[in-house]
Amino acid sequence: MTRIFFALIALALLTACQSAPPGAPPKPPPIPEMSPMLPNSAWVGGYWHWDGAQWVWIRGHVEPKL
């Protein structure tokens, strides 16, 4: 049980890490998107991704609910 707890903590910490180098410009604010309300689906919001030279916006999309 303790091992699973520490594994989850480690996963949470790694997920929060930035992947941009220290000299990169700050991440821009999120771009507002329309989030459609569809039955049996969920909206996954867009996010900024560092491509090695600049921040690139990855658009949101609809995913089926499991």
Score class of each variant (00 low, 15 high):
26 P>K: 04
55 W>V: 00
28 P>T: 01
34 M>G: 08
43 W>E: 03
38 L>T: 04
58 I>L: 14
38 L>M: 05
29 P>Q: 04
27 K>C: 12
5 F>H: 07
52 G>S: 00
20 A>F: 06
35 S>A: 11
61 H>P: 10
17 C>W: 14
37 M>A: 09
64 P>V: 13
34 M>P: 11
45 G>Y: 08
13 L>K: 09
28 P>S: 03
36 P>T: 02
21 P>Y: 10
50 W>T: 01
6 F>A: 06
49 H>S: 11
26 P>M: 00
4 I>C: 08
8 L>I: 07
2 T>A: 14
16 A>Y: 05
42 A>R: 12
64 P>T: 15
6 F>S: 09
60 G>D: 13
19 S>A: 14
1 M>T: 05
45 G>H: 07
23 G>P: 10
20 A>M: 02
39 P>L: 04
55 W>Q: 01
62 V>I: 15
13 L>P: 06
29 P>W: 03
3 R>E: 15
24 A>L: 01
1 M>V: 05
26 P>C: 01
46 G>H: 03
14 L>R: 00
12 A>N: 06
28 P>L: 06
11 L>I: 08
64 P>C: 05
35 S>M: 05
58 I>G: 06
10 A>H: 02
4 I>M: 09
2 T>C: 13
62 V>E: 14
35 S>G: 11
28 P>Q: 06
4 I>N: 10
54 Q>P: 02
19 S>P: 06
37 M>V: 12
6 F>N: 06
53 A>E: 12
15 T>A: 09
42 A>K: 14
32 P>G: 10
38 L>F: 05
28 P>N: 01
34 M>Y: 11
21 P>R: 04
15 T>Y: 15
7 A>N: 08
61 H>K: 15
8 L>Q: 06
19 S>T: 14
13 L>N: 09
62 V>Y: 01
14 L>C: 07
4 I>R: 08
35 S>T: 10
40 N>T: 02
23 G>K: 11
42 A>L: 10
3 R>H: 14
24 A>H: 00
53 A>M: 07
57 W>S: 11
